[in-house]
């Protein structure tokens, strides 16, 4: 028996090797193609946005886009294409969202990382995950049918479509994001540092605010910046509850329109392929893309540049 398996393997070798030689050559190529698809996606996005935006600017002047204070694309006789009302609507929503998400997200992060026992953490973290996994259309529904009526009880003059309600709900939506990313940053602060401060008689709160928060600051800021980017790109909540009235305003009780909800509005309408309105969604999309891209790059820069090494 000894040597017979050896012989068998030898007999199979020829066939095995010629086949595996081909496979070993082809497979890396196929996998590389897979990897390149992600690059092509980025190129596709950039290419699409640039080409269609250029077409848009051949019909509408760049100067008008950046200086006009009015966005009335549907005025057939004299449409206005000034991006500022959409940007202000977007930033208004983002601002409200941050006012909700930063305190609650950060508070939850501090509680989870500094106070909570393992058991509590094991219960709360999945709940945050569930909250993060709820589709945005559901949040939109919640904003329109629950938050807005509740707010109307407080502010009777509040119209059905307003900036406040979707802003708050976008904030709720990104609480889990800030909470979990900040908590990661805070938990990675070594326990030895905490014990050092506790050993000197500092309270948990003092440790959290004076020791852990500063040490984890870059991670926390990065999480907030990412959350801002997420809020800027949020679409369905503002589409459902924010209205469709592009307005250069800081009044949170008014109906507004964000960049994203404008794009949806056009895609739902009957603006045909090739019209100026059709191309305008790409210009708006480009603006949106640049906003979020910058935010993401800033977040990456912060977390890379200021990474704490322990």
């Amino acid at each position: 028996m000894q040597g017979s398996i050896r012989q068998m393997i030898k007999d199979k070798k020829e066939k095995q090797q010629s086949r595996s030689k081909i496979v070993e050559k082809i497979v890396p190529g196929i996998l590389l193609i897979c990897a390149i698809i992600s690059v092509l996606t980025t190129l596709g996005i950039v290419f699409t946005l640039i080409v269609e935006t250029i077409t848009f600017f051949s019909q509408v002047s760049v100067i008008e886009y950046f200086t006009s204070k009015d966005w009335y694309p549907f005025f057939e006789s004299d449409p206005d294409y000034g991006i500022w009302p959409l940007i202000s609507g977007t930033l208004l929503i983002t601002g409200i969202a941050m006012l909700v998400a930063v305190p609650f997200g950060l508070g939850a992060a501090i509680y989870l990382s500094e106070y909570a026992t393992d058991r509590v953490r094991r219960i709360i973290k999945p709940i945050l995950e569930v909250l993060a996994g709820i589709p945005t259309i559901v949040y939109g529904f919640f904003a329109l049918t629950f938050v807005t009526p509740v707010l109307q009880n407080v502010i009777p003059s509040l119209p059905v479509f307003n900036a406040l309600s979707p802003g708050i709900v976008v904030g709720i939506m990104i609480i889990p994001m800030i909470a979990s990313l900040s908590e990661d940053a805070m938990s990675s602060v070594p326990n030895a540092i905490r014990e050092g401060a506790l050993g000197l008689g500092a309270t948990r709160f003092e440790v959290a605010v004076k020791v852990v928060l500063p040490a984890a600051l870059s991670g926390i800021i990065a999480s907030v910046v990412l959350a801002i980017s997420r809020a800027i790109g949020e679409t369905m909540i503002v589409t459902v509850a924010g209205g469709a009235t592009p307005k250069l305003t800081l009044d949170v009780t008014e109906s507004i329109q964000t960049m994203t909800s404008y794009i949806v509005q056009v895609s739902l309408g009957d603006a045909g392929f090739g019209t100026t309105i059709y191309y305008s969604i790409y210009a708006v999309g480009m603006t949106l893309f640049l906003f979020t891209l910058i935010m993401n790059l800033v977040a990456q820069y912060i977390s890379r540049r200021f990474r704490e090494e322990y």
Binding site: A35, T41, G44, I45, L49, G233, T235, I281, L288
Partner: peptide
């Protein structure tokens, strides 16, 4: 490729819609 993938994760979903449309 790696940086590209993490940036792609941050692109708003509606922009993917524009890509798909075109």
């Amino acid at each position: 490729i790696q940086i590209n993938i993490s940036n792609l994760a941050g692109v708003p979903s509606i922009v993917f819609g524009l890509l798909g449309l075109t």
